[in-house]
Amino acid sequence: MKKKAFIAIISVSMLASMGTGALAATKLQEIKAYLNPEIKVQVDGTYTELRDVNGNAIAPISYKDTNYFPIRAISDALGVAVDYNSATKTIILGEKVDGVSIAKEFKDMYHTKDPAQTTFKGKDYKEAYFNTGSGDRSSNFMLHPNKEHQTLYLQIAAVDGDITDFTIEDSNNNIILKKVDVIKSAEGLVTIQVDIGGIKSLYIHGKVKSGATVFVPLTTSYYK
């Protein structure tokens, strides 16, 4: 529903507010337009106040009987990822063609590049989250897609014991995006897919028993 609404709205909402230094471009044309705070926006039947990247309320620009909104504000309201490629001057909406490894900027005490810990069933993944903590415990880490990606493809394996109550949450809004009751050790490496459009940070956690290890290959887990 949201994606259908997005297509309809975006057809009249193509003013990009991406901090691209557009004023320096040579193909800009000066126009006369007006801010129109009387225009309201509904998303799935609920009125929504659009905001800029700093959280300030914004009004659309009216020009020749058409209303224009910053594309970032619309994408945030609909939960659709938006990014900008400065090299090609391209606005990217939704899922990207090429995946982006979660290894980039991943930080956690269990982040390792030790081949003894990054290898699973004969394949060396070069970088991994390898939680070998002692005792019954919660295994958890953070990811920061920063609203730039639509989907997370997370690979994970339970070693020498199952992972239970595995959960992926929107950490800024305390909303559960995905929950798996049990990831069995016998399953080997599994891939969990979750929609993360419009989400800034993720809290990923699960429960493991003493002696069990949580293995997440960072180079083959990715955003799109």
Rank of each mutant, 00 (worst) to 15 (best):
V97K: 15
T220E: 15
L189S: 09
S75Y: 02
H205T: 12
V190K: 13
L15I: 03
E169N: 14
A5Y: 07
G211I: 02
A59F: 00
N67F: 03
P217W: 00
Q117Y: 13
I102F: 06
I31Q: 06
L15K: 13
V208H: 10
G197W: 05
P60T: 00
E187V: 04
I61R: 00
A59I: 01
I196N: 09
A22H: 11
A116N: 13
A87Q: 14
A128V: 01
G198L: 06
S75F: 03
K107R: 15
A81Y: 03
A116M: 10
A212P: 11
N54W: 00
V41T: 02
L15P: 05
G198P: 07
G188S: 08
I183Q: 09
Q193Y: 07
K209Q: 14
A16Q: 14
G198S: 08
E127D: 10
H144E: 14
N54H: 01
P115E: 04
M1Q: 11
E169K: 15
Y223F: 14
F120P: 06
F6C: 06
I196Q: 08
A57Q: 05
D44M: 11
D76I: 01
A73V: 03
G99F: 04
I192T: 03
S75M: 04
V194F: 05
K126Y: 06
F120Y: 15
N85Y: 07
A8G: 13
V216A: 08
S13P: 10
K123Y: 14
L189I: 02
L154N: 09
D165T: 10
A157R: 05
D124H: 02
N131I: 07
I192V: 10
V190H: 09
V159E: 12
N174E: 15
K147E: 10
S134N: 12
V214P: 09
A5E: 15
P145S: 03
Y129H: 07
V190S: 08
Q42I: 04
E30D: 12
T20S: 15
A73D: 04
D165L: 12
I9T: 12
T164M: 09
Y153F: 13
A16E: 10
P37Y: 00
E187Q: 14
V100S: 13
F120V: 04
V12Y: 12
A25T: 11
S86W: 10
T220W: 11
I168Q: 04
I61A: 00
D65A: 04
G45V: 00
A87M: 06
I199T: 07
A59C: 01
D165V: 06
T48K: 09
F106C: 08
T164D: 07
T26Y: 13
R137L: 11
G55H: 00
A25D: 15
D52S: 00
N173Y: 11
S11R: 13
I91H: 07
V82N: 10
L143I: 02
I102S: 05
Y125K: 03
V216I: 06
L202M: 06
H205P: 04
A33P: 00
P37Q: 02
P115V: 02
K178C: 08
I156G: 09
L78F: 01
A81R: 07
I199C: 12
I10H: 13
Y153L: 12
F166V: 04
E127F: 03
G198W: 05
N174G: 05
A24C: 06
L93N: 07
V97A: 15
Y125M: 05
D124F: 02
I74W: 00
D65R: 01
E148H: 08
